[in-house]
Design a binder for these strands. Sequence first.
DNA 1: CTCGGTGCAAACGTTTTGCAGAGCA
DNA 2: TGCTCTGCAAAACGTTTGCACCGAG
Lengths: 132, 132
Amino acid sequence: MVVRRQSKMRQVVYDTVVEHPVHPTAEYVYEKLKPQYPSLSLGTVYRNLGVLVEQGLIRKIESLDAADRFDGNMEPHSHVQCSVCGSLQDIFLSYDKGLDAAANRESGYAITEHNISFVGICPDCQRTQASD
Amino acid sequence: MVVRRQSKMRQVVYDTVVEHPVHPTAEYVYEKLKPQYPSLSLGTVYRNLGVLVEQGLIRKIESLDAADRFDGNMEPHSHVQCSVCGSLQDIFLSYDKGLDAAANRESGYAITEHNISFVGICPDCQRTQASD
DNA sequence: CTCGGTGCAAACGTTTTGCAGAGCA
DNA sequence: TGCTCTGCAAAACGTTTGCACCGAG
């Protein structure tokens, strides 16, 4: 891998992902930083997110939406996404190695990891729907 | 929902998804049908895949690749994708309702479903790598 | 001075959409 | 006839990339 320099932009991109409670999209990171760094470009955000993922500092997670989201919490954990409003939250479950073994038995694939993603309705949207 | 007509194109799109062992992308379905239906357009394939998903006849599944894939098997099951060649295969595991309950306890979301996706290396690629 | 980082804009691959015409019920 | 389906092409969308310049080491 290429040796990376310290970079201001990469640092603030990283901080934004880690600090933000909801796992942000690239677009969100861009919008968030733009006021403070008016010269920032979206390409740089994508480039730095890519570098950070490659360095194992953040993870890319899929979501119901089209856009990728990024997660600064590297502890193994799952996610639940609200099918109504799209909000995404962490779920911490113990990693079940038995699933990998079972999957290997069935498929012959050498399993390296699994991801469990939940779909549901968040507390806020439950309230909103109840009061309809 | 709008009342849908029977449609030849929708039928053949459906058949292609269901019959194909590997879960095809929209592009693949298009390429597969084009020789037999030269006037077919990619827009129609996308539209029909969308309608079929909406009708619950097929599922859209995420993959490591950029393009969505579609799955004509509606039994609840998981998938494993090869991180080397991208091949995708079904995995049948019993649905563990306990996971949904645990996720609900942790997040407060009303869980409607979960998906387990495995990443691994397929038998073919294992052989190829071993012989390197 | 060298090489990585950046901004900008163009390009990319996938998917959606507006429109006018075709065709089933 | 009415309404859905279709082909076509353009556009939308998230993302990547080529380029020239900037700046840290």
